[in-house]
Amino acid sequence: MITEYLRFRTTPSFSSDPSLFAKLREGARAAGIVNQSYGIGVEDKEVLHWIIQFDQGFGPKDFVWDEAKYGDFTKEVMKIAQEPPQSAFMHFDDDKEPFAKEVTDAPVTELAAIELKEDLSEEEASKTLNDIRSIVRKAKNGKGACWGADNDKPKNVYLFVGWESVEDHVAFTKTDSFKEVQGMMKNIISGVKMGHVAFSDHVQQ
Rank of each mutant, 00 (worst) to 15 (best):
K127F: 10
T128N: 04
T128V: 15
L129R: 03
L129M: 14
L129A: 09
N130W: 03
D131A: 11
D131V: 08
R133Y: 02
R133W: 08
S134R: 12
I135Y: 09
I135E: 10
V136D: 06
R137D: 07
K138A: 13
K138I: 14
K138Q: 15
K140L: 06
N141A: 14
G142R: 02
G142S: 01
G142L: 04
G142N: 08
K143A: 10
A145C: 15
C146A: 11
C146S: 12
C146I: 14
C146T: 15
W147I: 15
G148L: 08
G148N: 13
G148Q: 08
A149R: 13
D150M: 06
N151S: 01
N151P: 00
N151D: 10
D152V: 04
D152H: 05
D152G: 02
K153M: 01
K153S: 08
P154Y: 07
P154S: 06
K155Q: 12
N156G: 01
V157D: 00
V157N: 01
F160A: 02
F160W: 09
V161L: 11
V161C: 07
V161W: 08
G162S: 13
W163R: 09
E164P: 01
S165C: 04
S165H: 09
S165R: 10
V166Y: 00
V166E: 02
V166R: 02
E167C: 06
D168W: 11
H169N: 15
H169S: 12
V170D: 05
V170K: 05
V170F: 06
A171R: 12
A171H: 03
A171M: 09
A171I: 07
T173L: 02
T173M: 00
K174T: 05
T175C: 00
T175M: 01
T175I: 02
D176A: 13
D176I: 14
D176E: 13
S177L: 07
S177W: 13
S177A: 13
S177T: 14
F178V: 07
F178P: 00
E180Q: 14
V181T: 06
Q182Y: 09
G183K: 12
M184W: 02
M184R: 03
M185I: 14
I188L: 11
I189M: 04
I189Y: 06
S190N: 10
S190L: 02
G191C: 05
G191Y: 04
K193V: 13
K193C: 01
M194I: 15
M194T: 14
M194G: 08
G195Y: 07
G195W: 07
H196Y: 14
H196G: 05
H196Q: 12
V197W: 13
V197T: 11
V197S: 03
A198W: 00
F199Q: 12
F199Y: 15
S200F: 11
S200E: 14
D201L: 13
H202D: 09
V203S: 05
V203L: 07
V203N: 01
V203E: 04
V203P: 00
